[in-house]
Amino acid sequence: MGKDLISGLGDGARSNRRAAKVAESQYRMVRFENVGMRYGVGPEVLSDIDFSLKPGSFHFLTGPSGAGKTSLLRLMYLAHRPSRGRIGMFGRNITKLKRRALPALRRRIGVVFQDFRLLDHLTALENVALPLRIAGARKDEIEKHVSELLDWVGLEKQIHARPPTLSDGEKQRVAIARAVIGRPSLLLADEPTGNIDPDQGLRILRLFDELNKIGTTVLIATHDRGLVSRFGRPELHLEEGALTFRPGLVADVPNETAKGAPTTPEPAATPKASTAKTA
């Protein structure tokens, strides 16, 4: 049964929904147990972190600057190893994984950064294609997927533009297309709207919302209170090293709304509480 879940998740976002039901309580997309993290020999920037994310859930990760949001995300996108505790992802204990096994796991995680991290000398198309190219996908397959995605983020006219000629909002949409081109089951975003104006920020959050509706698990770090209250999703709040769960202001059941209106930008979320529990 655990195997089924893992291969199901690997098939991409659509099957996540099915997996979500299977996984309901026993299996988790992300599960942190007593996790501690430090940079080098410095002090712990995260201590005793305990929480889990259900497949198909949507959370904000909030907290003041320096609280450790970026650090927590880095643990999740496997850019940093915890100094203690246990992290499970997709039902696997990643604290015990060999380096060799990481690329395959990373391909199931999409990441969006505050500073976009696009390669300036590549076109929008090439930037979005990068994960597929790295995975060795066929050229015609790449082109088709990439232009579809650029359509979806509203950049069909800027396919051949290079990042320096794009606005920040456009850059972030290219970055989102790149993050989801591999159909990840987990999407992590670190202050994705931090560098762009509020209108564009809203547009970007709607993209995340659409992805969530087709089953992608979403976690967005932000300190933008306005955005959080507007979307009414549950929060994981980090402050002084402690993580607390705050239910969203609007009650919702994401998996059911998803069936009805896959592209509605209207926020409608929050799983049946206790998706995350406090440390």
Binding site: L102, P103, R106, R117, L130, P131, I134
Partner: peptide, 13 residues
């Protein structure tokens, strides 16, 4: 930073 990005999007060493 580009190397970190490549790792993040699943590049092997």
């Amino acid at each position: 930073r580009t190397i970190e990005l490549l790792h993040t999007i699943g590049a092997k060493d």
